[in-house]
Amino acid sequence: MIVIENVEKRFGETTVLKRINLTIEPGEVVTILGSSGSGKSTLIRCINGLEALSGGRITVDGNDVSTKAGLATARRRSATVFQLFNLYPHMTALENITLAPINVLKKPRAEAEARARELLKLVGLADLATAYPQRLSGGQRQRVGICRALAMDPRYLLLDEVTSALDPEMTGEVLDILAELARGGTTMLFVTHEVEFARRISSRIVFLEQGELIVDMPTERFFAEDGGFAVPRIRQFLTKMKKD
């Protein structure tokens, strides 16, 4: 369970996150929606410890991410997929995937490689195991990025706009995999602008507005006329998203 309590984040004078409260139970797929600059990425980066909190507390299965030991455990339980993939360019797809399992989980190389090949097959990249990232298309890179995260056998998958650097066709490739994972019961915290997709796969939707979490609703309620749609700001956001 990921528990976010009263989390605040400031960069100098500007407050980017204001008293955020959010709980993600195992098996849930929670989507974070919100306009650009509302603090979605920052929230994800607070959970995986890339940003230090200015206030409040985040625990992953009870491990406080603001302590050194807690963060180490929390990072083993969760894995992040990034918008710009952040693959290691000097390593093959396979090496990208096996690095952390060998290094952090101390898996034997053979075992890590077998698992990596399994994952690559799962995302349809079985023949590209020895390819370097430069040779892969954007969609293929992001699929490797997802494998790299899954190779850590995470309980929680954090995804920050993983398709927004991709063209529609590649977006499809990646979303299909995520839908598959969601069906398989992977717990996900998902930042996206793909509203329709979020509607299909998430169990809950939260809405961030200028650093405040203004709505937290089951997906159906969120899209209901008397639910999320009744909130003017969300109606406006959803209508605008539909148009784009």
């Binding site: 995986n48 410890g49 890339l50 180490a72 990072r75 083993r76 894995a79 992040t80 990034f82 710009l84 952040n86 693959l87 290691y88 690095l99 952390a100 290094n103 952090v104 790299r148 995260a149 850590m152």
Partner: peptide, 23 residues
């Protein structure tokens, strides 16, 4: 080296030392 590189590795729990050496 872009910061995203070490961030990706550290979010997966790699220790600083190994990130320097391998990434």
């Amino acid at each position: 080296v872009p910061t995203g590189q070490s961030e990706a590795a550290s979010a997966l729990g790699m220790p600083y030392r190994n990130i320097l050496k391998r990434i």
